[in-house]
């Protein structure tokens, strides 16, 4: 009698264990480590991907998010934050995953189309209602008495794009790197405070009402309108700006350890799908897909855009020249 009941309970136990093991295998978890302004984009995208993966692979997936300054997030992944995919602000921060810890192969950026950047953005100006200081283009930012809000290019990806966009404009307008350097130095004299990340700057400008003009990611500029009320701010598109390509990649070492390569790759590919591109467009990122981009053409104005590769010889070069310790930014910027 006793033996029988023991046997029975053992049977129940094994059945229970196998059942839970089976359901365990059915569920998969992804961690996407991203930068600051993509919070809203990935909140929406993750929902769509969960449904998509359920339908195509018949597997339940939960996607967790981590957000912060792009450089800081890369540092965390290098230190062991187990990201399956990273979606950061610029290629240099992802290059660091190879340079510092060999988490990804060196040629990571050629693995997906469009330099592994499924959406793009650019840098625009945000001014207060009615544009009281009459700011139209980059030249207006270096005028005396104008306060420019931009985060610290040492820590913020967006801020580096801001800086390089200003540089590219000045070089085109005044003809040489020396003139560009003078121009950018003058511009940073007008910056009263350097926040460490893009979101911090947004709060400084929109919530704390500091400054006359805010250099911002285009998507962040639209978001300010949405969050703080239409009509309180105006978006000014300068005559020339920079093509910002926020790239994405699977973190090879981590997906191999977690056994998530298949779903992680599908996740990134889904960013390039029509549905993914639509979600990017809706969250004010410029879609790569021409068809989807056409749909959003009334939102995104045409801007003359230069790229980092042709103008600055790629991120590695730009980073060492401008933003490394003792680089040009350190030489021209003195905290006030």
């Amino acid at each position: 009698m006793l033996l029988k009941s023991v046997k029975k309970s053992l049977l129940v136990l094994t059945l229970g264990l196998t059942a839970s093991a089976a359901s365990w295998a059915q569920e998969v978890k992804l961690l996407n480590v991203s930068y600051d302004p993509t919070r809203e984009l990935y909140a929406e995208f993750n929902k769509a991907f969960v449904a998509h993966w359920q339908k195509t692979a018949n597997q339940k997936v939960t996607v967790s998010q981590s957000h912060g300054g792009s450089g800081k997030q890369a540092r965390s992944v290098i230190d062991g934050l187990a990201a399956d995919v990273v979606t950061l602000a610029l290629a240099y921060d992802i290059d660091a995953l190879y340079d510092e810890a060999k988490l990804i192969p060196e040629n990571w950026q050629s693995r997906l189309p469009n330099n592994s950047s499924p959406y793009t953005s650019t840098i625009v100006f945000v001014v207060r209602k009615g544009n009281p200081k009459n700011i139209k283009d980059w030249d207006d930012l270096v005028k005396p008495g104008i306060q420019v809000i931009t985060p610290n290019p040492k820590t913020s990806g967006g801020a580096r794009w801001n800086y390089l966009a200003a540089w590219a404009y000045a070089k085109k307008a005044y003809g040489s790197d020396e003139k560009a350097r003078e121009f950018v130095a003058k511009l940073y004299k007008n910056v009263p405070v350097l926040d460490s990340g893009a979101r911090g700057s947004t709060t400084t400008f929109a919530q704390r009402q500091l400054g006359d003009v805010f250099l911002s990611w285009e998507n962040e500029a639209f978001l300010i309108e949405k969050e703080f009320g239409v009509g309180k701010f105006e978006v000014i598109v300068p005559s020339l700006s920079i093509l910002a390509e926020p790239p994405v990649t699977v973190v090879d070492k981590n997906v191999e350890k977690n056994g998530t390569r298949k779903v992680a790759e599908a996740y990134l590919n889904f960013l390039y799908s029509k549905e993914g591109q639509e979600i990017a467009g809706k969250n004010f990122y410029r879609p790569r897909d021409p068809e989807v981009a056409a749909k959003f053409s009334n939102i995104f104005p045409e801007v003359k855009l230069v790229t980092i590769d042709e103008e600055f010889g790629g991120w590695r070069k730009a980073q060492t020249e401008h933003f490394s310790d003792g680089g040009i930014f350190d030489q021209i910027y003195q905290p006030q």
């Binding site: 919070r39 809203e40 967790s64 965390s76």
Partner: peptide, 22 residues
């Protein structure tokens, strides 16, 4: 923390995240 939502965010960190998300 690594700031993974729902996993490694404590209450003070959660407050910061919400504030940054308007």
């Amino acid at each position: 923390s690594g700031h993974i939502r729902g996993q490694t965010n404590t209450l003070p960190l959660h407050i910061e995240i919400l504030y940054n998300e308007y």
